[in-house]
Amino acid sequence: MNARTPTLRAALLGALAAMAAALPGAAAAAEQDEIIVQSTTSTANSGFFDQVLPQFEARTGIKVKVVAVGTGQALRNAANCDGDVVLVHAPRAEADFVAKGLGVRRHPLMSNDFVIVGPAADPAGIAGMRDAAAAMARIAAAGAPFASRGDDSGTHKAERRLWRAAGLDPDPATDRWLRELGAGMGATLNAAAGMGAYALTDRATWLAFANKADLRIMVEGDPRLLNHYGVILVNPARCPNVNAKAGQAFIDWLLSAEGRAAIAGARVHGAQLFRPAEPQEKTR
């Protein structure tokens, strides 16, 4: 039976070899100085990190690993100590995160703005409006389809603020034109393109988004559409696994002149993605 049944033995050997091959990869990761940044899809999908991180890594040798999820999930993951730095865009939730002792301190980092996009046909007639809340009210009045993130992300929070500013509280259960997707920004834009719906998106994602179909920017420039990003070191006193030194180095670099220049220099199709925040009074 031995010489004649090579298959089982070969399969076993193959399996062992595969496992052996898998182990070094897992082990090697721990040796290098690295941090995990819990961040949002808007920063990752727009290519922002792809342009900024290599500069930091070249300068410090610290490797930055970005997990891109919604702001809500990024903060929850960080609350579980699964990450060293949070880089998100929901100032109120971030303040809450720090107040609970989960993060050390929120540093205003950068901003861009939200835009309301919609189909070229513009059934609600909002193209060119400056008042975002009024535009949202008009969409609701027209019953024109609106694709909502519905995922407790920073963008979703911003959208709900706009509905409230318009004096509305639409409910997807009864207001059928409001389509809550429970999806990321890209998936929501894909759906909006497919349904001919309006949507609120951050400009960075929009600029980099390739499947615009006949979606156009309808409303921009309202101060309420400003989108602020903050960066927070996860509290090492609470999460001993946090690489505080490298994490703080990353934050310090982002806030430095070099980091701010890197942020300002990140572009897609020639357009600037984010504006660095004004330097604060010296942090810490």
Binding site: M185, A187, A210
Partner: peptide
């Protein structure tokens, strides 16, 4: 999934 989110269908 990432490229889909980027609209790079």
């Amino acid at each position: 999934a990432l490229e889909t989110a980027r609209g790079e269908l």
